[in-house]
Computed example of a mutant assay.
Amino acid sequence: MIYKTKVNDNVYIFDGSTFELYKNKIDDTNEIRRDNKFVRAVPRRLEKLDLIITTQCNGECLYCYQNREYFGHTSPLMDKTSADRILDYLTLNYDKIANVNFFGGEPILNFKIMKYLTENLRDEFSVSSLSITSNATLIDDEIIDFLDKFNFNIILSIDGPEIINDKLRKNLKYDKIYETIKLLCKVGLKNNLTLNCTYTKYHEDFFDKNLLIEFFDKLGIAYHISDVITEDPNLKLNKIHDNENVKLDIEHSFDRIINNSKNKDIISYTRDVLEAIIYNRSSEWFCNDVIEGYSETFDTDSKRHHCISLIKEDIDFKKINNVNSKNNPVCNNCWARNLCSKCIAQYYLGNEKMIQNINDCERKRYYEYTIKTLMRIYEVSEKRFNKIFSNYIYF
């Protein structure tokens, strides 16, 4: 256990396990004095913290990853002992946390621990943003008051109108989800809400995509429609991610930003280019979520993981850094090197191979198409071009 106290302008941390005492002098050097020797402090600001507080769920979605024992043999519910171990680890390594995200299973099933962690994290780490991903069916007045008090961002899963949602999401009735949405809007949390739809072959076969978009547009709440990830032939999409479809997704992304659409789906190529232009963001890594000191993920047993996509893998930063680094002959000769991003989970697991030749890199080609599309918009209308940047900041 960790004891942390402040005396005058100094913060003292005592580790009850190792009996080590740290003095963190608050000054411009941000150095820790230990045994009269100075060592450079580890990065003190954590950008993202993902907490899996339960692997249980009250629903039985046909496409759910938990059907494949995704979480392995972790405990069904995080207990206070595991929560305290996480808090102790964070106390030793960070002063501030930007974003905290609660996941499951259905996190509301472990509301007691969610509340405990939220109160401790907000008090100790000046958390900027809190979020929860939920199926919405267990949210009651007490939980709404809690979400409102701490200004949570709330991602609710709903797969469309009743005829679609209730087919795919067993025990998670559309009527109850819609009732929760109305209650959250009533207390002033509409702008904190995002709806997430998992798009499947069932949608393709029985419900036109344009009707689905129309359904979500009428709700007037920000939403994402995400393609299902599954090998189940009854659910796997027929959609082919060919060259023309990717180009259309790039064009549609710009259109949604210009029109300030409630549909928040933006393909990564468009997002990466705009982030680079607007915020001058550059990275030596493909994915920040697996960088030690930038993002942390903990399961119900307080075990650390690279990210949720690699929940079954043991922590090995040397191995993952080799895959995640852009310091290679192909990337070093690419103009898009500093803005390029991608999920590296499949490369890390050995299911995909790294690009060996710059001419084989489709990401480079799509970044080029993104730039060309942006310039075409400018040529047609400077007003629409400027809207891309002014709207994206709040998109």
Rank of each mutant, 00 (worst) to 15 (best):
N10L: 11
P43A: 04
E119S: 01
C334V: 08
D15M: 07
D265S: 11
K318Q: 12
K80Q: 14
V187T: 15
S134W: 01
E69G: 12
D123H: 05
T373Q: 11
T118M: 03
K383N: 11
K364V: 14
R34Y: 15
N210C: 05
M354T: 12
I344S: 02
L211Y: 10
E142M: 04
R365W: 04
R33T: 15
I139D: 04
N165P: 00
Y174N: 08
K319T: 14
F385K: 04
I291D: 01
K176L: 06
C343S: 12
E379S: 14
E362N: 12
K176M: 04
D255F: 04
I26Q: 12
E162K: 15
F103C: 02
S131E: 03
I344A: 03
E244D: 14
N260K: 14
N93A: 01
I2T: 11
D159P: 01
K149H: 12
G72E: 10
K239A: 09
M1F: 03
I139W: 01
Y3M: 06
F71I: 06
L248I: 12
M354V: 11
N386T: 10
R271S: 15
H203S: 07
T373S: 13
K80D: 11
T230G: 02
K170D: 09
N171T: 10
K353P: 01
H252S: 10
E284M: 09
R376V: 02
K247H: 11
F103L: 15
D15L: 07
D9G: 11
F207H: 14
F14Y: 15
T300G: 02
A136Y: 01
V7H: 08
N101D: 13
K176T: 14
T180P: 01
F395G: 03
K176W: 00
R40M: 09
Y223H: 13
R256H: 10
I250P: 00
M1W: 00
F102H: 02
D265F: 11
K209H: 13
N99C: 07
I229R: 07
A136C: 09
C331D: 05
K115I: 05
K182S: 13
K326E: 02
V42G: 11
I240F: 04
N8K: 13
I86E: 00
S82T: 07
S390C: 03
D95F: 08
N321S: 14
D95I: 06
R337M: 11
D232L: 00
D166Y: 04
N324R: 08
F215D: 05
D27W: 03
K182F: 05
K319I: 09
F206Y: 15
I258N: 04
Q56K: 14
D145T: 12
N93L: 08
Y12I: 13
E69M: 05
Y94V: 06
L51R: 03
F103R: 07
L156Q: 02
Y3D: 12
D242H: 06
D148M: 06
E47R: 13
N10Y: 08
T5F: 12
Y70C: 02
T180F: 00
F216G: 04
N357E: 10
L212N: 06
K318A: 10
I393G: 00
S295H: 04
